[in-house]
């Protein structure tokens, strides 16, 4: 059984690190999403991915929610592939939280 970290400051720093990597991953994938193929109305997609410590995908992304537009689904999946290696923490503790990720896409949302 894992001991929870008794030091609140270090726990807070770990949370900050997690957010940092989440933002890095979000930015890298977002850059590769081609929303030209996703129509003009708001759509939502969800994928689940498995990652190696190198940031490479384990297997193919698993689509949990389709946009309803096949070429849009394919385009977002390509964006995920294209973003390898994803920036993941080198710290093994922290990496364990990134081994599996859910990615929610809103390609037609204005950022």
């Amino acid at each position: 059984m894992k001991q929870s970290n008794p030091n609140p400051i270090e726990g807070g720093a770990k949370l900050g690190e997690m957010d940092k990597y989440k933002v890095l991953i979000q930015r890298k994938i977002q850059q590769n999403v081609n929303k030209q193929l996703c129509g003009s109305s708001p759509v939502e997609l969800q994928f689940e991915i498995g990652l190696m410590p190198t940031g490479e995908l384990i297997g193919n992304p698993k689509m949990l929610k389709s946009s309803g537009i096949p070429v849009c689904d394919e385009s977002v999946e390509r964006a995920i592939f294209q973003s390898q290696p994803l920036p993941v923490p080198t710290d093994t503790d922290l990496f364990s939280k990134f081994k599996n990720l859910k990615l929610n896409f809103h390609p037609n949302e204005k950022i």
Partner: peptide, 16 residues
């Protein structure tokens, strides 16, 4: 718990 990341918009316009 699996971490979820929200990704909005898209920065690419072409297929390589």
């Amino acid at each position: 718990a699996i971490e979820t990341i929200e990704i909005s918009g898209g920065g690419t316009k072409q297929i390589n």
